[in-house]
Design a protein around this nucleic acid. Structure first.
Lengths: 137, 137
DNA sequence: TGAAATTATTTTCCAAGTCAACTATTTTCT
DNA sequence: AGAAAATAGTTGACTTGGAAAATAATTTCA
């Protein structure tokens, strides 16, 4: 531990996050998809018709940032907006056919990078990591 | 685990990182200092005269981003640049008196948030976390 | 009821980040 | 030596992110 900031938990966490994020970014880049875009696709694929607010919370983005990213996703034909049924202020998002197709194309990419981490750490360490990280929130 | 992306390690890591980063950002905001600025101050305080490239690696930033942040830090009077002695292409950075003073002011802020995590997790869990995160890089 | 407060999302304006190209210096290699 | 390649850092054009204000719809409650 030659450098002092390496002893801070926030730093170690940031460093590990950066490494994993960059590796995932590189893998998804070949498919022209951003990590955050993948998160939205994955979330909507599992549970369609999420509102912007709920989605922002899940995909770890601030609402204004999500709005802009969704603008781009709409332009790319991956999702479309629909005014909320019971509450007109809300906006529900749903995948288009292309969105579902794109999701199917990249799922393997993400899963195989996740498996790589699994193999690197081993099952019990992954469980431990999840447990500890969960307590930080 | 209601949402599927919560089962991805990269996601859990991103979520924990976001939580910790936001909390540190909020604590430092009162002193008008960005997390990345703190990292530079802390690094230079421990080992003065780092080059831009080495510093970028340590503080987890891309070189162009660091250049621009250092521009601001120079304007704020926290650091100053000096052409490399043996290699004229290199730029060495050093803290100004104000930079050292600012560092002294915020060290407690960062350390107390780190201690909060320590207390939350306990010593052995922190060690385990550091160990696991270290293997991700 | 209906004015005031609250909530969901977007917009605006500005600050910060990225990629690729560029400058300057040093190294390599014939 | 000296031309070509490599390296350190910065710049410029463009994109993205963020805080606060704005808009629109819903709730609250006197």
């Amino acid at each position: 531990m030659k450098n002092p900031i390496e002893s801070y938990i926030s730093y170690t966490l940031a460093a590990a996050h950066r490494a994993v994020h960059q590796s995932l970014t590189a893998a998804l880049k070949e498919h022209g998809v951003q990590v955050e875009v993948w998160r939205v696709l994955e979330t909507l694929d599992a549970e369609p018709s999420q509102t912007m607010g709920e989605l922002a919370r899940i995909v770890l983005m601030n609402p204004p940032t999500l709005t802009k990213m969704v603008d781009r996703m709409v332009m790319d034909g991956l999702v479309h907006r629909q005014a909320g049924k019971s509450d007109q202020r809300q906006v529900n998002l749903m995948l288009t056919d292309l969105g579902r197709k794109r999701m199917a194309q990249i799922r393997d990419v993400v899963q195989s990078q996740d498996e790589a981490i699994y193999n690197l750490l081993g099952e019990s360490e992954v469980a431990k990591l999840n447990d500890i990280l969960g307590r930080l929130m």
